[in-house]
Amino acid sequence: MTYQHRLATREDLPAIVDIYNSVIPDRSATCDLEPITVDSREVWFAESDPERYPIWVGHEPGAPEVVTGYVSLEPFLNGRRGYDVTADLALYLHPEHRGSGQGAYLLSRAIARAPELGLRAIATTIFASNERSLRLFRSHGFQEWGRLPAVAELDGRLEDVVFVGLPLTTGLG
């Protein structure tokens, strides 16, 4: 399937929240244990900056109003200024669009745009048991930068978290 993307609008927030909430029950992609609300994500959305930390939504051609996934870039490690050259990436897909190439599409678009946003690296965390996501990120050049053993507990199961990153440039010049 072919996908397209665009900057997210406030009107997309309910769909973004629904997509995020769809991964909570299977305990494979987030440490949230209860669904989130649109209200709880208002500040997150309002603080996104299309010129620095955008949120893009995926959609099928001809249907830009139907959100099928999203990718966001956010401040890295609590937004301390020295980390401004790196962004934390989040990528979530609607259940009906997983395994269809949309994840690869959105990830490649974020990687391509990141240098234009002033970024030199992108990083994210993935549960060690989430092989599908690890494969996706590795296929785009992400490397394991660290592993945090048993830092999450999901329904009585301890999970390792893999910290992966992608350098976008080789120097600070």
Rank of each mutant, 00 (worst) to 15 (best):
M1S: 11
M1T: 04
Q4N: 15
Q4V: 03
L7Y: 09
A8L: 02
A8C: 00
D12T: 01
D12A: 08
V23Y: 01
I24S: 07
A29V: 15
E34N: 15
E34V: 05
P35G: 05
P35H: 14
V38G: 12
W44E: 07
W44D: 02
F45V: 03
F45W: 05
S48M: 03
I55W: 04
W56C: 04
H59Q: 10
E60I: 08
G62V: 11
V66G: 10
S72L: 00
P75C: 00
L77D: 11
G79V: 10
G79L: 13
R81H: 15
G82E: 02
D84Q: 08
A90M: 03
L91I: 11
L93R: 12
H97D: 14
S100E: 14
S100P: 01
G103T: 15
A104H: 09
Y105V: 15
I111Q: 03
A112R: 08
R113N: 04
L117E: 01
L119A: 08
R120P: 06
I122A: 11
A123S: 06
I126M: 00
S129C: 12
N130S: 10
L134T: 04
R135P: 12
F137W: 08
F137D: 04
S139E: 09
G141Y: 11
Q143D: 09
E144K: 01
W145P: 00
G146M: 05
L148R: 05
V151T: 09
E153P: 13
D155N: 01
R157L: 04
L158N: 03
L158T: 13
V161L: 06
V162S: 13
V162G: 12
G171Y: 13
L172M: 05
